[in-house]
Design a protein around this nucleic acid. Structure first.
Lengths: 215, 215
DNA sequence: ACGCACATGTAAGCAGTTACATGATTTG
DNA sequence: CAAATCATGTAACTGCTTACATGTGCGT
């Protein structure tokens, strides 16, 4: 069975963008640029870098550095086979999007806890949004000023930016809306709350696009 | 070090909702109700069910069924310690939301592949949205008719519904918008494309909410 | 009677994480 | 010059997935 190793291909993509990278540079780049849609620990990047060499997708060279006893640093560059593999992968169908939201799980089970537990879960989704906003503000400004790393790729990176900005906005709005919704419970009896719930479902569904036809 | 085992607590939440469950019922429930924000394979549910017993959170009883050689089926119910643990967990801070979108990774690296590769990546995000819409339409109708399983929890489940509906809508809109954006490239030179990219970033940022003050 | 799907798991293996190690560099 | 931080990894562990096993019931 062949596991797809998306992370390995993410690495391969970076290797193709510049002639040579150290493992730490790769780890930093993944952490800075991909963490919101492909979050991986640095140790994973180190392991995948070695694996890429084993697979023949990259070449490595161990360089000694200034200090005598300093740990040797490994520098990677992509191979012809790596470029070939990358093109094949880019042409293959992407895996589906995966969302993991523990806060939403807590909301689902909210009746088993307190209302304050629920409020905290809703709040934490708002915090997620805030973090995204604050990073996006900085990155976005760089693009506007033309000083971003990989500024040459704005035409495609803008799409990623737009996605993440949209995600942050939607998430932020949900959190605010939900906070107000829970606040509105005070003084409601269970039937009124149930009615409010049905009303919320109805409003959500009203925004669905018309079903597209299959042709 | 203590791993949080969110999946185990998700299970515990289900166990608290009904007096008794078979492992397969638990797996089905997680697959149906949680798969869009906490997707886990059935085999994981089987393993966590056993682990819950080992931790003292649940009790299990192995029942024999009709046929002689039929595999024995295990029935689980929550313990007092399990209810206690569940309350503690619900009061603890949730982990941050994690998004994994391979399609977005492909968009980021799109310059290394063909424009059609990029189109397919964008399209696949639209497909994700369509699947969510089709499930949400069915589930939503049940809530409106009052026939949903766990209808008593509409007042909180509506929040989860609203989140997923919003996610589907945002995702769908991004896919359409991005398709049009890429289509607009025909006949543009690289500078014009870069300018279009910067314009997209600018429009995305314009929608950011004002930064909240820390008090 | 035969084939197929379903129910109820088990087994093997990989991807990913946290924790730690070690010397260099910077900083107060 | 001691303390904190950084660079560059390694080690140990675990959650999760895919693939498989085995027997039952059902449709035809």
């Amino acid at each position: 069975m062949v596991r797809s190793s998306t992370t390995g291909h993410a690495l391969l993509g970076l290797l193709a963008l510049r002639p040579s990278w150290t493992a730490t540079e790769l780890a930093d780049q993944i952490s800075r640029n991909m963490r919101f849609f492909w979050p991986r620990a640095a140790s994973r990047v180190f392991a995948e870098s070695k694996a890429a060499v084993d697979r023949g997708w990259a070449l490595s060279r161990s360089e000694s550095r200034a200090g005598q006893g300093a740990p040797r640093r490994t520098r990677y560059r992509i191979s012809a086979a790596g470029r070939q593999e990358l093109k094949l992968w880019l042409a293959s169908p992407p895996r589906g999007t995966v969302l993991e939201c523990e806060a939403l799980l807590r909301v689902l089970l909210a009746d088993l806890g307190t209302v304050d537990d629920l409020r905290r879960a809703i709040e934490s989704v708002g915090d997620d949004a805030d973090e995204l906003f604050s990073v996006a503000s900085m990155v976005g400004s760089e693009y506007l000023e033309g000083t971003a790393p990989f500024q040459d790729d704005v035409h495609v990176r803008a799409l990623v930016f737009d996605y993440l900005a949209g995600f942050a906005t939607f998430t932020h709005d949900w959190s605010e809306r939900s906070r107000a919704y829970v606040d509105s419970w005070s003084g409601m009896d269970p039937e009124a709350r149930a009615e409010a719930g049905v009303g919320l479902v109805r409003r959500s569904m009203a925004k669905f696009p018309r079903q597209r036809e299959h042709h």
